[in-house]
Amino acid sequence: MTAESSLHLTNRPRRLRCTSTLRSMVQETQLRVADLIYPLFVMEGEGQKVEVESMPGCYRYSLDFLLKEVAEGFELGIGAIALFPLIPDAQKDNAGTESYNPDGLIPRTVRAIKQQTPEIVVITDVALDPYSNQGHDGIVENGKILNDQTVAVLVKQAIAHAEAGADMVAPSDMMDGRVGAIRKALDQRGFIDVSILAYSAKYASAYYGPFRDALDSAPKFGDKKTYQMDAANAQEALKEVALDIAEGADIVMVKPALAYLDIIHRVRKHTHLPVAAYNVSGEYAMIKAAGQQGWIDEKKVILETLLSIKRAGADLILTYFAKEVALMLR
């Protein structure tokens, strides 16, 4: 009798870990390419593919290069992209008027993508910070972010994106009442099939730094704590989610993801709507930096990270790793 068989144990959980096939059979959480939304940065010009210094492997693309990236992603099974614009300073003002220009960067990009790859789901960011000369998500007056005046501009922006062919608009601004206002305006103009992915629980996080580098959208004064959520608050997230659902959101989202897995879990228990999570730029940058130093097995950590977000309860994950993961899972 060997030492291994000297104990009489009714339950041996290791039985189901003996082989990779067994482990795969009983795996509780599955990560699929279809779960991923690929955020992409678009810029003016031609023949441009400029790496974001603080996000190794992520680029700002001119439209011609962006179309190639979209086509490659779709071939890999990525069914949805989220667009974020780098707007020239000359086009920025406090009112974010360029955000609803029907011939602006995002509407032109949406039309081109839909002409090339009509099946892909195009999600557009609805917020003023890329278009604001103040770097804030709303109109500024005497150092204060104006809520209702900003919502009126966000409605115009969402309509411009819908008219261009966007499948889904994603208000990321955290202004009160913007989901309801956008839903009402979309419906009144006949865009009843355009969905709203609401940034419902978006925290005032330090993890956004590289993203702001990519879009040159850092606030010119103060911070965003008067409209984005306090990192200490969890119940407030459920309140924000409930409000967005009542106003007509089709998908609710938690942002960031890794430091807020508990929030994702709470939101998942709170609603039957799809729940998204944003694996944000700072989370991406930390893994990339450690991988470049050889301190971690980068590919394994990427997969473990995204699995943890799904395990917490996310149905969909916005992640800059989308293309890499699609190749890994292929």
Rank of each mutant, 00 (worst) to 15 (best):
M1W: 10
A3W: 07
S5Q: 14
S5M: 02
S6H: 14
L7M: 08
L9Q: 11
T10C: 09
N11Q: 14
R12Q: 13
L16E: 11
T19R: 09
T19V: 04
T21L: 15
T21E: 15
S24Y: 10
S24A: 15
V26S: 15
L36Y: 15
F41C: 09
G45M: 11
V52R: 07
S54K: 12
M55W: 07
C58P: 01
Y61V: 15
S62H: 03
S62E: 12
E69W: 02
E69D: 12
I78F: 00
A80L: 10
L86F: 13
I87C: 12
P88Y: 01
A90P: 08
Q91N: 15
D93K: 03
N101E: 06
P102L: 03
G104S: 11
I106M: 06
P107S: 00
P107D: 01
R111T: 12
Q115S: 13
E119N: 14
E119P: 02
I120T: 13
I123L: 13
P130Y: 04
Y131D: 08
S132A: 11
S132G: 05
N133H: 14
Q134P: 00
Q134W: 11
D137F: 03
G138F: 00
V140F: 04
K144N: 06
I145W: 09
I145N: 12
L146H: 06
L146W: 02
N147H: 13
V155D: 09
K156I: 07
Q157H: 15
A160S: 14
E163K: 15
G165L: 05
M168S: 03
V169M: 09
P171T: 03
S172H: 13
M175K: 02
D176M: 05
G177W: 11
R178N: 13
K184R: 08
Q188I: 04
D193S: 10
I196A: 04
A201I: 06
K202M: 11
K202C: 07
Y203N: 02
S205K: 04
P210M: 06
F211I: 10
F211S: 01
R212H: 08
L215I: 03
L215R: 02
D216T: 05
S217A: 15
S217Y: 04
D223G: 04
K224V: 04
K225R: 14
T226V: 10
A231L: 14
A231C: 08
A234G: 07
L238V: 10
A242N: 07
L243H: 06
G248T: 12
V252W: 00
M253I: 01
P256N: 00
Y260R: 01
R266H: 12
V267H: 00
R268L: 10
K269P: 00
H270F: 15
T271D: 06
T271K: 13
P274L: 01
A276L: 01
A285R: 07
M286F: 10
I287Q: 07
I287M: 09
G291S: 09
Q293Y: 03
E298L: 09
K299S: 08
V301Q: 04
V301M: 10
E304I: 02
S308W: 01
I309E: 02
R311G: 04
R311C: 00
D315Y: 05
L316Q: 10
L318M: 12
